[in-house]
Amino acid sequence: MNASKPILDVRGLRTEFRKSRKTWFPVVNDVDFHVSAGETLAIVGESGCGKSMLAHSLLQLLPKRISRLAAGDIWLEGRNIAKLSEEQMRAVRGKDISMVFQEPMTSLNPLMKVGQQIAESIIEHEGCSHDEARRRSVALMDLVGIPEPAVRAGQYPFELSGGMRQRIVIAIALACRPKVLIADEPTTALDVTIQAQVLELIDRLKTEIGMGVILITHDLGVVAEWAQRVMVMYAGRKVEEADVETFFSGPKHPYSAALLASVPRPDAIINGGRVEPLTEITGTVPPMDQLGPGCSFADRCERSADICLAQQPQIEMLSNGARVACLRAGENA
């Protein structure tokens, strides 16, 4: 399934937050992953697992005063953008890597016409004339499926529905035909029917533009339908990464298994049509500034042993192709 050479290749990424004047704690810890053109990588996990922090780290959007990229490389087509200055990073944001956020209702400036909000990005990155930018933003609005784009371009966000606003946000993200699109829970705030439309739109444009998509979600149904690969995060670390088929046919990390068991599955392929009772994962994600030396999932894990509390599990490739960070993954469940 893995197509060509990756567009985005992240190695050993570690993002830290300030705890006090001199001490820092990781919110993203030693994460590796890659995305190829035309591919959708889903990043899943409960809220607070670090997936959103990871997305913001890629674009260095976290506030500098309280956070830092402590280690790791972010290779974008052979260029390490982790080392760029803020000024150089600005040229990457919205041009090479774009981001779509969770809240369409608040993601747009309420006092600026939506067409202008799209044009702004084009002007910033391609330095074209205002007329040219305006023409292109109308074309983009047409591309994301907004009826009467020329009229809508002159309207303000409050005049548009939530689904329309999210399409505008996507149009902004696509304005400069980015190589990578990060969609951070793009449909959580939308109605179910609109959700499918928006995801379908992202999927179609992915092929048209030939970009890689990082889809951050906690909805495994969305993952099954739209992603090619899955990466599961827990407490800032990658705990499992696999093809969608491999993943849904039997997640190897106890946390992935628990996530899957806690989701109602209309999808019969997942478990051969057998309906299992829903289970909840007991407990919550531990605060990231209070992690012990061992596996951070150990105290919620049904299969944890003494060794789990003492030793940090490393990512290992299993026979089915999945990469899992669990000391007991090799053993039979």
């Binding site: 674009l59 600005r90 990457v92 956020f101 608040t106 993601s107 400036n109 702004e120």
Partner: peptide
Amino acid sequence: QDFIKTARAKGLSSSN
């Protein structure tokens, strides 16, 4: 607010 984050993600300068 969120729309400021959107503006930053567009690559706009901080003065902008």
